[in-house]
Design a binder for these strands. Sequence first.
DNA 1: CTGAAAGCGCTTACAG
DNA 2: CTGAAAGCGCTTACAG
Lengths: 343, 343
Amino acid sequence: MRRHTIDTETDSTVPTLIAVAALAGVSKSTASRVINGSSQVTPEAVASVTAAVEQLHYVPNRAARSLVRRRAQTIAMVIPQRTAEFFADPYFAEVIQGAAMYASSTDYTLTLLIESDVDPDKTRRFLTGGNVDGALVLSHHTSMQAYAKLSASLPVVFGVRALEETTPPGHVVDVDNVEAGALATRRLVEAGRTRIATITGPLGTAAGIDRRAGWRRALLEAGLEPGPEEEGDFTPTSGARAMERLLADGRQVDAVFAASAQMATGALGVLRDRGIPVPTRIAMTSVDNNVFAVDAYPALTTVDLRTAEKGALLVQTLHRLIAGEDVPEMTTIPCELVGRASV
Amino acid sequence: MRRHTIDTETDSTVPTLIAVAALAGVSKSTASRVINGSSQVTPEAVASVTAAVEQLHYVPNRAARSLVRRRAQTIAMVIPQRTAEFFADPYFAEVIQGAAMYASSTDYTLTLLIESDVDPDKTRRFLTGGNVDGALVLSHHTSMQAYAKLSASLPVVFGVRALEETTPPGHVVDVDNVEAGALATRRLVEAGRTRIATITGPLGTAAGIDRRAGWRRALLEAGLEPGPEEEGDFTPTSGARAMERLLADGRQVDAVFAASAQMATGALGVLRDRGIPVPTRIAMTSVDNNVFAVDAYPALTTVDLRTAEKGALLVQTLHRLIAGEDVPEMTTIPCELVGRASV
DNA sequence: CTGAAAGCGCTTACAG
DNA sequence: CTGAAAGCGCTTACAG
């Protein structure tokens, strides 16, 4: 079917614009215009160049293009090295996946940049050295102020709101964690539960703080007294310990909102060991619709954070910023409750 | 402390080689030589250029450098789109982390390339279009033959051995999965177990096949009859179902080797529900030293696959290949048993 | 609408 | 050891 391409496949040199132009019978300039979708070309030129590109499997050289356009056509996903747990959490992996997938559909390339603990300045130099057109910062852990300063020299979009005030404030794409906590808690209220405890995330993170705030809000809305709360760190083990503490001094709770599915899994394990039936005696809801939520027993009613979508939106927002568009500082992703067996 | 840098920080243009040369009082050529570590420069030249680089925060323009060197200074991590589960598995996330971390220490940049299902050729074009110096392929799912052909035009390293024969054979960096299965099984043998079943991974993957082979080998070595086996797909749920099947017809097993920690977690849940004590009645070992293994109850004795190290080794091997070094086709990563409470 | 020319920021023979 | 010059593969005013 493509017999004639054997030649070009065996010779390993990559075809150049000149080759395309020659084959199409036009100048480099015209070939370039066609390839870049300029309107100032005749249909004939378009046809012949397109055919030549096809035939030669021509792909523009990114380096050359970047050089003249003064655009790297690359965006960086910055990841702090200290967060080994960063990757252990399926949440981040999913964000990265969504971002990479979206980036694949554009002219931009997504580079994974691990910020060295020993030389954080190396990362900054790379970012501000013109090798990247923009950066995505997901970190929960590093001071955002350090990155906020970056925004001065480079478009930056954050995947999490700042805890402190930063200057400049910076652009953020995130789910509404308050709403997530409220949604999950309201479900418990609707089920007729009245003593609703929470296992919070780390209260040093925006997600931890906000989901807890949502829990409180939902309870107050319903005229209920906020039940007891115990802090976890998003891992299953911490959820188990928190559940034990909740059970310890005989505080009678009939429902628990766990701020992550991983913690809910740990909590469910404790309840199972104690022979406390779920959801009959204690109902549970959580946040994160991942493997932990699906494989929990009983399967968890939880809030889907649209994580892959968030990754895509991060990239999209960064694109707009790079293009000089006026982008709102805050982009909020709607979340939704997914009903399962735990309530 | 760096008061004088205020100027360079406020003006947003990135310094160029010419600026460095001017400040250092040498030509572009000499500046370039110093920056690239040429030996043909006087110590004075080195000193003045280094100082200038420091002062200006100079970072070479990658595009320009790539253009002249005819090297993209970029390697791609190719990920098939259909594998949504790819990212759900902490294993892959850890490989990517290891790879990105190692890459950060080199001049190469790691690009995440999601292979579009609708247009897989787009990925191939990108890869063979000279935009990348080499590629890493982790896929369990796509036919490796498709990628093997890639090796003809581009250095490629695989993170998993081919199931079928491929031409050319290709370079592989992977853990010895047979050994992993054998290690985990031998531990059960040493504990005095004699009826050792296995929950295998999908038998359409190298990891599934090889870990099962290791289990058999260890049993035969010990003069034991291979116990019953049930196939899973590496997820907790599949592990639970497999455990139920194992228990179903009263086959008396006193130990189970689960080919992944996720499956072991599911299996443990079933045993817990049935009131079968672990490890006293049934001991269990697995493969993967991740959050599932640590947070299982009881915590799992499992095989550490050195996953982050694998990621680093993938990149390192690819570098060697790009540099034209003679690299062995197969690089095997040693794995090791981590003892916990499940046996 | 098209082509010749300049130039993006580097590296590297080449001559000195 | 050093500098002037050419050139990597593109895009884009500029003149026609």
